[in-house]
Design a protein around this nucleic acid. Structure first.
Length: 136
RNA sequence: UCAGAGGGUCGGAUGGCCGCGUCCCCGCUUGCCGGGGCCGAGGAAAGUCCGGGCUCCACGAAAACACGGUGCCGGAUAACGUCCGGCGGGGGCGACCCCAGGGAAAGUGCCACAGAAAGCAAACCGCCUGCCGAAGCCCCUCGGGGCAAGGCAGGUAAGGGUGAAAGGGUGCGGUAAGAGCGCACCGCGGACCCGGCGACGGGGACGGCACGGUAAACCCCACCGGGAGCAAAACCGAAUAGGGAUGGCACGCCGCAAGGCAAGCGGGUUUUCGCGCCGCCGUCCGGGUUGGUUGCUUGAGGCGUCCGGCAACGGGCGUCCCAGAUGAAUGGCCAUCCAUCCCCCGCAAGGGGGAGGACAGAACCCGGCUUACAGACCCUCUGACGCA
């Protein structure tokens, strides 16, 4: 599995917004851009989350980011192509949308961006199961 | 039981799987590593409205002035605009609730509309007295007399009318009509006496009554107050450009100088021309951005208990360590249960099914205030009705 770093600098977010490809789904928006060469490694992907005031107050914004983090843990981390920066953007529906639908949104968006790898290298498919847990 | 008043507590619970953050321990393949353990949002974490701590800036001390704030009394407190106990006024049958509650004989201003008049006494319609009284009416002993519209002078403030407010109220006496003019009761002022630390309360000689309201109008009085805020502030400090100091090397030709020429360097390479730079290499210093570290959580601290106090609160003893993130941890999913709501069956007891968690997320830390909030529970008290 790829090593995951968290995007922590404003500059990285702005770069992803400016240079990256974007795909929107009802539950979220995904931006993807190749990691800058200076920091890029084959086995590493970088990940960031954001939710603007449009989503709601502090409670709703934080909740949206937490749900996005959990969705990314289940879908994006095992399946997304390394060497890229991914930014997941919260939308108003991120908070209310059923979690399984949110997972589906993320998977679809990654496919549309061409950064979704089907199961390879002996890794188990990370289809969301009914109880929301991953089979080891 | 119903209706109501005051105060307090909580604000989903338990379990399973997977995850996140600080700290601690262990391991190695020392890394943005793996494993384990403890702890991990609120009563308002919110608004940022007051009061402090802390930090920096300014500043010799103190006072005055200006500006701002506070404003019944006493107490609590680090402090407060907060809290507690009282006082006064208003509301409620009551438990209780509400009050921007200092000064209006220090001065100035204002009092809309209406009204004659809004602050100093005045008088519009009236009422009363005296004098005059042409026209008119009545009487007559024919001389005149009376009534009276009206006019002049004066006395009044009872009645009418306006207003939020009109110079005490009601009644009796009194009077030409009236009037504290006199009297009774009520109200008001009030020397002084008593009680209270005090706000204030009780009594009250005497005074026929004078002194309207407004200080969320200026103002006066008393007390309090430097400014900015953790993005405060301190430290470390890469790369690049630029600044200063210094060491080594280089420093040609013309010209007194200004300057010119040549050489060197710059853009993939070479030549020519044009343009730009005026040395090249090294060391050190200061400033300083991205970033990092500290500040950063042990504190006017929580809990228990005893003592003092009506209480706010204070004191003693014991015990506990209780979030520290920084693109920002405290989450995702599932099951059961507890509230709550809806639907169906049933006369009912009850049964079945479904929906589904209020307001809201720490960001330096405390004390308050204010605002938001589904619902649940507890205590004390009041008024009805009923029972004993």
């Amino acid at each position: 599995m790829a090593l995951v770093l968290r995007l922590q600098r404003r500059a990285d977010f702005l770069r992803a917004a400016r240079l990256g490809r974007k795909w929107a789904m009802p539950g979220l928006v995904v931006q993807a851009v190749a990691t800058p060469p200076a920091r890029a490694r084959d086995d590493t992907l970088r990940l960031g989350f954001t939710a603007s005031r449009k989503v709601g107050g502090a409670v709703l914004r934080n909740r949206a980011k937490r749900r996005l983090r959990e969705a990314a843990r289940l879908i994006l981390v095992p399946r997304a192509e390394p060497g890229y920066d991914y930014v997941l953007i919260g939308r108003p529906q991120t908070v209310d949308r059923p979690f399984t639908a949110l997972l589906q949104d993320l998977q679809t968006a990654l496919k549309r961006l061409g950064r979704y790898r089907s199961a390879e290298g002996g890794q188990a498919p990370a289809e969301p199961s009914e109880n929301g847990t991953r089979t080891p």
